[in-house]
Amino acid sequence: MENRYELNKNLAQMLKGGVIMDVTTPEQARIAQEAGACAVMALERIPADIRAAGGVSRMSDPAMIKGIQEAVSIPVMAKCRIGHFVEAQLLEAIEIDYIDESEVLSPADDKYHIDKTKFKVPFVCGAKDLGEALRRINEGASMIRTKGEPGTGDVVQAVRHMRMMQSEIRRLVSMREDELFDAAKLLQVPYDLVKYVHENGKLPVVNFAAGGVATPADAALMMQLGAEGVFVGSGIFKSGNPAKRAAAIVKAVTNYTDAKLIAQLSENLGEAMVGINEQEIELLMAERGK
């Protein structure tokens, strides 16, 4: 019996307790691996630059992704546009380890996400709340992350999304079984997934934090709020000393309750990415794809 979906969920389990870093060049990928990244996300422009550049943002050049695959031994992920199943087919063709169907890129479809059950490679998708998370899982996602607000260096939305998911999970757990049918209706998700969450008190797949994480303390905050690992995008290579900051975030994720250690790790990291406050953002990427 070969169950690709189980194998794909299993890979996400291996990434737990780790940090997945956005990289744009083989050199950055090597720095990330040296610093302790458990995987890298290969993309042409990190979210902060996508935001600054504006225009349509698409899947990265396969040659660029291959360059990164050759540079490191850890898993390599890459993003395709929401609903763009051909971009996903191309990423599968170059044997990517994980596809991120991502709101960071311009959506290719404003109604349908990719039917991820049709693919052999795994998908991670963003979610703001439990309903979105379970809809993506129903479509075949084998890993979930918060959407946060990418490229801002502002953690507020990742916090909001993680808190929302966790509180909705706790609410489902506390329900009587006969209330789950209505809960499924309200969440717009299948009953079986609601029942799983009710019985297990967690999503059926691994759940990471993403979007706006810029400091070791941000990463530890997300872990204490229930994340099983962290994506860091612009926060590393938009900062003053990427290697040092990356290594500090990796250690903060491992020992996320040790304030003394995280305080030490936070010393002299150089400048953090500048960041944009939530109120100053013109484009809310988290509103893409529900």
Partner: peptide, 15 residues
């Protein structure tokens, strides 16, 4: 456990 050996090896040394 399972995971990424590069990450685990580095953390073992640095911690």
């Amino acid at each position: 456990p399972g995971g990424e050996s590069t990450v685990q090896g580095k953390l073992l040394r640095e911690l």
